[in-house]
Simulated scan of single mutants.
Amino acid sequence: MISYEYPLNERIRTLLRLEDLFLKLAHFTANSGPQDHHIALLTLFETLEVASRADLKVDLVQELERQRQILVSFRNNPEISEEALAGALYEIEQASTGLLAMAGKIGQYLRENEWLMSIRSRAAIPGGVCEFDLPSYHYWLNHAPEVRRRDIEGWLSPMAPIRDGLGIVLRLLRASGHPENQLARAGAYQLTMAGRSAQMLRVRVPRSEPVVPEISANKYALNIRFLLPETVARPRVAERDVAFELTFCSL
């Protein structure tokens, strides 16, 4: 099955974007090639840009505290494992402590690094980070892989509480829903929300189905069209019934 997640508010949209960027950062940093570490650095700049758009730290702290209170209410419940509950509470408390310890604007230490900001500004120009544009960056890219990796991890580590906090929130959000089997007749599916509240939708489609969901939703209605994933022509609606799995997720 291929999962497609659709955020229904700006806060979840930001968290999903940051999650994707942190995953890419981890992937490219773990590799050893100069081009891998170049992409890791560009991804770090994207992460800085997205994380600066909202009062992210406050939102995460408040949501983690809300989830902590919910979990505390499950104590002494015979149907809940005390060991698992204690582990979840510890994880939330550790993430909250890390977030509260973050001082100032997210990523301000990166903005104060003139060398990194010179790379960031040149990277906005197509082909702008050639060796003749940034010889000091070319020198860095020719360092040993472990030196570059240590530098990237050092620049990333102050943002680790953001990564850990959003990871917990998104994990709880994904676990909150109950999947339902649905059928899009002639490639189209409509549902009246009728007071149903959700923060994110998950659509899962069998890998054998060569279709891509196009999702639009508001507080009144949900519409999904399954399109044929054309790479040359304009995408067309798959004019056949498509079975899929739909999950409404809400904290």
Rank of each mutant, 00 (worst) to 15 (best):
N9D: 15
N9H: 12
E10Y: 07
R11G: 10
R13V: 12
L18H: 01
E19G: 06
L21N: 04
F22Q: 04
L23D: 14
L23M: 13
F28N: 04
S32G: 08
G33R: 14
G33H: 14
P34E: 06
H37P: 06
T43F: 00
E46H: 06
T47Y: 00
V50R: 01
S52I: 08
A54C: 11
D55F: 07
L56V: 07
L56K: 02
K57E: 05
V58R: 11
L60K: 02
V61N: 01
L64P: 01
L64G: 01
L64C: 05
R66N: 07
R68T: 15
R68P: 07
I70R: 13
L71K: 13
L71M: 11
F74N: 03
N76M: 13
N76Y: 14
N76P: 06
N77K: 11
I80V: 14
E82I: 10
G87W: 00
A88W: 00
L89V: 06
Y90E: 12
T97S: 11
T97A: 11
L99N: 00
M102N: 01
A103I: 15
A103W: 05
K105A: 11
K105Y: 10
G107Y: 05
Q108G: 04
L110C: 01
E112L: 08
N113R: 09
N113E: 09
W115T: 14
L116D: 00
M117Y: 06
M117R: 07
R120L: 03
S121P: 08
R122Y: 13
A123W: 14
A123S: 13
A123E: 05
A123I: 08
G127Y: 13
V129H: 03
V129R: 00
D133A: 08
